[in-house]
Amino acid sequence: MTVNSAARIGESSTGKRSDFLQRYSTLVVLVLMFLGFSIFVDRFLTPFNLSNIFQQIAILTIVGAGLTFGFAAKEIDLSVGYTVGLAGILAPVLLVDGWPLAVVLVAVLASGVLVGLVNGFLVTRIGIPSLIATLATGSILFGINFLLTEGRAIYGGIPASYLALGQGRIAGIPNLAFFMLAAVLIAWFVMERTVFGRYIYAVGGNQKAAELSGVRITFYRMAALVLVSVFAVVAGALLAARLGSGQPNVGERYLLDGLATVFIGMTMFRPGTATILGTFCGALFIGVINNGLNLIGMDTYVQNIVKGVIILIAVAIVSRTTKLNLL
């Protein structure tokens, strides 16, 4: 791998204008989309719809925030969707079984830590690249999810206190929005303001350099993968509360959409680097597109196409000048 090949345009400083374009083009597109929908779609700019958007992207944002830790350390977790699914099943199964809510939440968190540790062990100790290791563990989790539910959805018997987590509102604002903001704030603080976050970025920025600087790279790579899974199980538990049921295959879409939030996020603020704020904007981006197109009445499959095209355009703008080092 050549680290040294970053384009050196002569020996000059970087241009300010192209720098700005790089950093904020996606954000500008997001704002333009928001304005466009506000002007041309009458039901878009209402308090109810805006809080709706937050509800729709809350779970996705939490998954994306977790993935951001992974990307910052240059580790990708392809099992994340099935980890969401695992928590989304485990919580209802245990609740229906009569376990107390607090114990269930601890068990769900523990499952996330366990998945992360297994992924981390395979990646750091055995030495399997995370892309491949998590592809395999994802398949295993997929199987486990179906074993746990015998392929059926779990309805009924879930306590109302639990459902309220995902369905309730405080002062008209969905509970999920608060969970999302809490997750973003915590993740942002850890990444941007702590020594731990510095080390995660150092390991992702140049693993060899971090190692020679005395950073415990095994620990931080592992920690990054554990955090991906922990955020994923929190998202999964909230998903089950929102749906009011445990379903074996609802987590899957959070893999691709989650990755999309991170990729879009990597186009802004610090191009090429995964940041929590970037990921949050990425989730907003997806949320605004989905919501706006929904209100227009566009079919969901057309929405997917539009979403894909817009993501490509955003990333293309940045890729022209910056190398997006994913793996």
Partner: peptide, 10 residues
């Protein structure tokens, strides 16, 4: 240094 000491995108 770019391989062993520095994160170029940092």
């Amino acid at each position: 240094r770019m391989e062993n000491a520095l994160a170029g995108d940092g």
